[in-house]
Design a protein around this nucleic acid. Sequence first.
DNA 1: ACTGAAAGTTCCACAGA
DNA 2: TCTGTGGAACTTTCAGT
Lengths: 160, 160
Amino acid sequence: MKSALEKLNRIDRHILRELQADGRITYAALAERVGLTTTPCIERVKRLERDGYIKSYTAAVNPEQLDAGLIVFVQIRLDRTSKQSFEEFKNALIDLPEVQECYLVSGNFDYLVKARLADMAAYRVFLQDTLLSVPGVQGSTSIMVMEVVKETLAIPVPYS
Amino acid sequence: MKSALEKLNRIDRHILRELQADGRITYAALAERVGLTTTPCIERVKRLERDGYIKSYTAAVNPEQLDAGLIVFVQIRLDRTSKQSFEEFKNALIDLPEVQECYLVSGNFDYLVKARLADMAAYRVFLQDTLLSVPGVQGSTSIMVMEVVKETLAIPVPYS
DNA sequence: ACTGAAAGTTCCACAGA
DNA sequence: TCTGTGGAACTTTCAGT
């Protein structure tokens, strides 16, 4: 079984690195960085997009300045007796703008939710009125983030 | 105290939404979407960048296709007796490419680390040879992600 | 799969309101 | 802070290797 990265040659991996570092780089500048002219460079980028290596491009905005400076992880335990609970919970959660990540995880609880809130007041409202009022939720444990040590979106792509 | 969002007018918030949804949109198209001509639109984007609302632009790549399909959260307990441990730990962690997020958190353990690995074999190596061999680490608990329900980078910016 | 060039867009600085 | 304009830069297509 070939590793996923080996399907991409050195230039493609270089392109992925550059586009992760600067998603708005021009094709002309990108081509120069990876040692191509613009035409084949654009072709490679389009193929990376088509093949799903690049899902989208996005501006990374600063949560601190946008009423979302508080990060909290909430472990949610669901009522396991009904299988319907899981689907209901997912559907309820997926549209909440405060919820940035949600995972089904191993262990004593069922879901791990990462949310961004303005402050503790907003957190209390979110937990009580939103999360805990979803049908099937049995209990929760919150982990408050005191300090962000690292937070990156980048997937490492080796060998320049 | 004015909320952070209220420092931005409707057009600026609209720009932030559009750039989060498509980080490579041309200024011409962005200007049309927000109802401006290109010159003032570019000025607003540059100001949002200067004022730190926009931190960077990035391509979102697919971890599944890049040997990083497995997500694991590791709770790390540190030796609390030495204050030096915290700095050492942070410095050791911050450069690890597998570590996508790292937080100092409240509760029984000290750090919560989110890492992306190729598979369970890579996870075991990472935990033993990398995380647990950092000086000052007393213990760890791992939470394996079974299913990704939601994973977004976007910070909600209300009122179009 | 790449080069180079031509034609069409976009960017961006400047003048003006 | 906006509109409009013109030259430079960039994108994109196409013929050729």
